[in-house]
Lab assay of single mutants.
Amino acid sequence: MSGNGNAAATAEENSPKMRVIRVGTRKSQLARIQTDSVVATLKASYPGLQFEIIAMSTTGDKILDTALSKIGEKSLFTKELEHALEKNEVDLVVHSLKDLPTVLPPGFTIGAICKRENPHDAVVFHPKFVGKTLETLPEKSVVGTSSLRRAAQLQRKFPHLEFRSIRGNLNTRLRKLDEQQEFSAIILATAGLQRMGWHNRVGQILHPEECMYAVGQGALGVEVRAKDQDILDLVGVLHDPETLLRCIAERAFLRHLEGGCSVPVAVHTAMKDGQLYLTGGVWSLDGSDSIQETMQATIHVPAQHEDGPEDDPQLVGITARNIPRGPQLAAQNLGISLANLLLSKGAKNILDVARQLNDAH
């Protein structure tokens, strides 16, 4: 009898209710805020589980004197976190989706994509230029951005401005803007500013005609071990179906173009009346040469937790077992079709030249 009692006690200790789920994140304040929001949602869904947040620095956090596009290494903000995932030191990792490459290392998958916040870019102005827009900034004003995508589009749109690289986390960039006289304004992701509670610093939100956004911008991705079915089931509740389908289309477009950090590629997606609209573009580094096109596809946005595919093969690095396969494939095909259209119009040449120029500098 006593033996059975011990077995029952052991089973209770090993039951999922007692389990601590370890969540990996970057150390920056924004990353911690984003991770806290994901953990809060998981806690609400699984009140019996405990969650421990483990923060670590990544290569991208450490190399702050070089433009991201020049470092010449993929997975700048993800490699150390993936290493911890691989060694079973954490069970899942919360990322900004735009930091996750469209091809993940073997053994990993994006197990959830959370509801997207505003994906557009924002302009934050130096205190002396508050009330201005990019259009009304004085001639030769210097605007800071760490992104080739932003610089290429904005140089084309605002030729009277000069664009220079600015690195560091959000706090560091804002301090550089406010305390030094080098920059009249800087460009940042609206979602990051909003998550930090800095709505009052948003001086201008850039519309798609001015600057399309990065693939996955404004959404959070939760990376897990691809074979860890328990954790895949656990994080599945975080999937937002519309965000998922938009981001599958965007990531398929980028992957098929073979774009990345070192080339200016941008997108804009919208879901309306059962249609998914995808606009994508590529630019030369100075913005003088560009190709942009829009395509659409009829896609039914499923309700969360309709029964999805059981075999769960990944699409552009994403596993969404609780979302039907048909809409996911339709979104992926839309991204591939748009990429093929741009490639047929000469996108590869623009991107190759951009890559060579970026590598040469």
Rank of each mutant, 00 (worst) to 15 (best):
R164Q: 08
I110G: 00
V222A: 10
E242M: 05
K115Y: 06
H160D: 12
Q304P: 05
G131Y: 11
Q275I: 05
A347R: 15
A303F: 15
M196A: 12
V90P: 01
K98E: 04
I336W: 13
I71A: 00
D233A: 07
H239K: 05
M295G: 14
D307V: 09
Q275P: 07
S337M: 05
I110N: 05
E82W: 06
R149T: 02
A339P: 00
Y213F: 04
N169G: 05
I63R: 11
E135H: 03
A320F: 03
Q50E: 15
P159D: 07
W198C: 13
V235W: 02
Q332P: 05
E139R: 08
I187V: 09
R164N: 11
P309I: 06
Q50D: 03
A112N: 00
I71Q: 15
I187M: 08
L254M: 09
A67L: 09
I248V: 08
E80K: 09
F163G: 08
G308Q: 15
G317S: 04
M196V: 11
V215D: 02
R149F: 07
G326Q: 01
E86H: 13
S75E: 05
C247L: 05
K74T: 07
L315I: 01
E223T: 08
D178H: 12
F183C: 08
Q356T: 03
L351G: 01
I318R: 05
V222H: 00
E250Y: 01
G60D: 04
G192Q: 00
S141K: 08
E117L: 09
A320T: 12
E139F: 13
V38D: 03
F129R: 06
L137R: 05
V94L: 07
L170G: 12
I110W: 02
K115E: 10
R156T: 12
A214M: 14
E182A: 13
I54F: 12
Q50C: 00
A270S: 06
S284Q: 15
N358Y: 14
D312R: 12
G168K: 02
L154A: 06
L341K: 12
V142E: 12
Q356P: 15
H300L: 12
A219H: 00
G236C: 15
V263H: 04
A297Q: 04
L85E: 03
T136M: 14
K87H: 07
E242L: 11
L154W: 07
L285I: 09
H268K: 09
F253A: 03
A249I: 02
C247A: 15
D286S: 07
H207I: 07
S284E: 00
R167H: 07
S141Q: 11
E80D: 14
N169F: 06
K176W: 10
V282D: 03
H305F: 01
L97M: 07
S45L: 08
P119S: 11
S288E: 14
H256A: 15
A84E: 07
A191E: 01
I291P: 09
L351T: 13
Q217S: 09
D289Q: 15
G221K: 01
Y46T: 10
A151W: 11
K62Q: 15
V224Y: 04
V301H: 03
G317T: 07
K157S: 11
V39A: 13
H95M: 05
Q194P: 09
P159G: 09
S146V: 08
G107M: 13
L76K: 14
M196Y: 12
A44Y: 13
E139W: 15
H305E: 15
A270V: 12
A151N: 12
G111T: 03
Y277L: 12
V130K: 07
Q304E: 14
H207P: 12
K98T: 02
R201H: 02
G111D: 03
G280M: 00
V222N: 01
N349T: 12
V94F: 04
Q181V: 06
Q155Y: 08
